[in-house]
Design a protein around this nucleic acid. Structure first.
Lengths: 190, 190
DNA sequence: CAGATCATGTAATGCGTTACATGATTTC
DNA sequence: GAAATCATGTAACGCATTACATGATCTG
């Protein structure tokens, strides 16, 4: 029920479906993602419901763009969502599920390898986030004069960084404990 | 594609669908959730594919239980999944999406209220996790002698706690910044 | 006897992914 | 002329939620 709202939010400035697709890749990845094949029909549906209006616009290259614009009904729906209090999705964290059952492999080294690989991927993700943060800080004017919109977008980025850091910290802590267990086991066998 | 694997993992000991439903509520909530209405057909499908086998068993109260048991094919599928490396779901974090668009309300106090409410809900969640941790530490024998399975389940819990703490920390940091902005605005107006 | 818990399921609907189809323009 | 980018979409399938349907047993 939220892709609708996210598209409405993104359409506070008129844009074509294709543009929104790139926005998911660039700035919204952290908290949501949608394929173009989902975006296009969703925009059509929102238009049919009177939330959006569209017109054709020529493209500098490639076929004509269908540019969507937010209508009053859409703006009201967006505001209702924003005023409805924090929404939570039911958790879906496959890698923690894997860890949960990892003893099935009967190989403590496999668990260690798994968490190491997890840490590597989280480091890469964190690096991407931090690169964005650098870019913002760089082109950013002075920090207090920033607009509310930019401030909130920056806060969302900070949230992603905070969680990635926490997960990495957990990896380090967990690896330490796993290795301590391995050492204890090896001295017990010897 | 993962509920299948999670059910296979849970069925390393035979159980009925209803039992698995409660397990999601009790110990797996942190990383996954499924309704009974999704669990029952999924179990049937896995049986048809030869991953599981089932038999009827009498219940102490209520209708007969259908108890499922893991077959070799199911165990192999489970292992393939565990060996396939850490899987990530595409992020879906509605409350960060809301924050991202929150300036639409044009009311800085609304953003502050939103993050406060978020913090309250995260504190409640963290308290639940910590209660589980207490329970584990309490009934737990000595920490090094714990089984691999219990160790991994504990690690999964620690992951949930780490993330909840990080989100709460981010709330505090963000609230501080939001309030500083408000103060700056008010002195500027005065 | 009412309400909670145990226990299994189906049906309808909606959300999301993957695969497929098309075609123009720009860059190398 | 090949590959990348711009741009729109449809179709099939699978995953997830909500609502509905049924009925036994236990607890207060």
């Amino acid at each position: 029920m939220s892709l609708d709202h996210i598209l409405l939010g993104m359409l506070r400035e008129p844009a074509a479906g294709y543009d929104l697709g790139r926005r998911f890749e660039e700035s919204a990845r952290m908290f949501w993602f949608a394929e173009l094949s989902q975006i296009y029909p969703t925009l059509k549906r929102l238009e049919k419901r009177g939330m959006l209006r569209s017109r054709e616009a020529p493209s500098s290259r490639g076929p004509a763009r269908r540019v969507y614009e937010l209508m009053d009904a859409g703006r009201e729906e967006l505001r209702r969502w924003l005023e409805s209090g924090p929404q939570f999705a039911t958790a879906r964290i496959p890698h923690i599920a894997q860890l949960f059952f990892m003893d099935e492999l009967g190989d403590p080294e496999a668990t260690i390898g798994f968490v190491e690989s997890l840490a590597a991927q989280l480091r890469a993700r964190l690096a991407r986030y931090e690169a964005i943060e650098e870019r913002i800080r760089g082109c950013g004017d002075d920090w207090a004069a920033i607009s509310d919109r930019d401030f909130n977008e920056y806060s969302a980025l900070r949230a992603g960084i905070a969680v990635a850091e926490a997960r990495l910290g957990w990896c380090a802590e967990t690896l330490e404990r796993l290795r301590a267990r391995q050492r204890a086991r090896q001295t017990a066998t010897a």
